[in-house]
Design a protein around this nucleic acid. Structure first.
Length: 394
RNA sequence: GCGCCGGUGACGGAGUGGUCAAUCGUACUUGACUGUAAAUCAAGCGCCCAUCGGGCUACGCAGGUUCGAAUCCUGCCCGGCGCACCA
């Protein structure tokens, strides 16, 4: 393990886009004082991807140095809901969703942080108690002009897109969180810059020392666009080993370095020297291995690497370990119905399309007729599309 | 509150009474080529049945006119712009 000074140096440098009051933070870290380090998360989706994990790993570094992590669940902010949802019923549903999301969230975060040492708070605890008067007091801290400096507001303003009054209160809600938990440091991605800085101002207003702010870069998706679940270019930390490995292999070559730096723990010098002498494919295999290792352990990573090799590189379906698919092997069955059984398609029309396109094969044989009937044997392999494989079970 | 413009598929954006399940671009899926990379080429891209083909549901919501509506009319909801308001 590196020296404490080394750890601090790394903490302040790797994947860090900007630090506000850098010297102050550096001094605080060296002072030996136990800092309260805040991260706010909105439980909006069910899965956490490796892009969002960047900041969690940063927290882990703080944790390893003995500081107190304070995780704030934005249950109150999320409850208020999106401005485009006008239905009165919405908040009730959201409350349920939030609870469901939280159940899956914390275990995922637990893959990165030591939850026993983490303070988990919900911001409804204090935001729910504020009076209208309190809110006005908070609102007084900022001017419209300051709010409009924010890029996404400015852009929307320019494009005649709506900006709700409520949205303007987001920074003050989040900033007040810092007051409530007496944060010394807050982390976030560059998209959070405005909110993070708002926290400083609000703390000062309430007579607290402004938190230092550490901003991490945003990880791009595997295809080079912004990482987003709707784009399908994400690798989730709870994804199965195989899936993580495969998704990493689908990464664009030019992003390999960035991914090594942002999503793995591999020492910078180590991966840089390797990268220059290896082919992109080899580098990616190493990268994929590291990613899986991080979330599933070394044994799983080794296994995933091997599986990938047999299935995709050697294209040896027969030798690979595949998920079983239960099919009646005694009667003949339509190709269409077999594909439906796999549940990789959302409709029969889609299944027909896939079949007609020649993307379904049993063993080495391509099956192009949706309504052709066949008797399929136990142990045979089935491939549907590019990446769905099964082994027939009785 | 008044006036004007607009709300179309994942997104952008055509279409302004039948030939519209809806031009086109992007994204996406699949095939070929490959390194499950990129680029390129090709096909597909509402749902259901099907061999050609047929049926159903859709163009903010609800009604109406018509043989026939995404297209016309009425009401409602939502967005933008302008006016008014600004003691």
């Amino acid at each position: 393990m590196a020296s404490k000074a080394g750890q601090i140096e790394r903490l302040l440098a790797r994947n860090v886009e900007e630090i506000v009051e850098r010297d102050h933070l550096a001094a605080a870290l060296r002072s030996g004082k136990k800092l309260r380090v805040k991260l706010g998360i909105d439980p909006t989706g069910a899965k956490i991807h490796i892009g969002r994990a960047v900041v969690l790993w940063k927290l882990r570094e703080f944790q390893d140095l003995g500081h107190q992590i304070v995780l704030i669940i934005g249950d109150y902010t999320a409850l208020i809901g999106d401005p485009s949802d006008k239905l009165a019923k919405r908040p009730m549903l959201a409350e349920k969703d939030i609870k469901a999301n939280l159940k899956t969230y914390l275990p995922q975060i637990g893959k990165i942080l030591d939850m026993k040492k983490t303070e988990v708070r919900h911001n409804s605890e204090w935001l729910g108690k504020l009076s209208f008067r309190d809110v006005l007091d908070l609102a007084e801290i900022f001017t419209i002009q300051q709010m409009m400096e924010r890029e996404n507001f400015r852009e929307r303003w320019a494009n005649h897109k709506s900006i709700s009054l409520r949205e303007l209160t987001y920074p003050i809600m989040q900033g007040y969180d810092s007051v409530a938990v007496k944060a010394d440091v807050e982390l976030g991605g560059t998209d959070q810059t405005f909110n993070l800085l708002a926290g400083r101002k609000i703390q000062a207003h309430y007579g607290q020392n402004p938190q230092d702010v550490l901003i991490t870069g945003m990880l791009v998706g595997t295809d080079g666009r912004k990482m987003s679940t709707t784009w399908g270019n994400v690798i989730n930390i709870a994804d199965a080993p195989q899936e993580q490995f495969g998704k990493t292999m689908a990464l664009r070559d030019e992003l390999i370095a960035e991914y090594f730096q942002c999503v793995t723990n591999v020492d910078e010098k180590a991966w840089k020297s390797e990268l220059t002498k290896e082919s992109p494919k080899l580098s990616k295999q190493r990268l994929a291995f590291e990613v899986v290792k991080l979330y599933h352990g070394e044994a799983a990573a080794k296994k995933a690497a091997k599986e990938w090799e047999t299935l995709f590189s050697k294209k040896d379906m027969a030798a690979a370990e595949l998920p079983p698919l239960k099919i009646n092997t005694r009667e003949d069955i339509r190709v269409l119905d077999i594909v439906m059984k796999t549940e990789v398609v959302s409709s029969k029309s889609e299944a027909r399309r896939l079949i007609s396109a020649g993307s379904v094969r049993v063993g080495d044989e391509v099956l192009k007729d949706p309504s052709a009937k066949l008797i399929i044997k136990e142990g045979e392999t089935l491939k549907v599309g590019k990446r769905h494989f099964f082994r027939i079970a009785a």
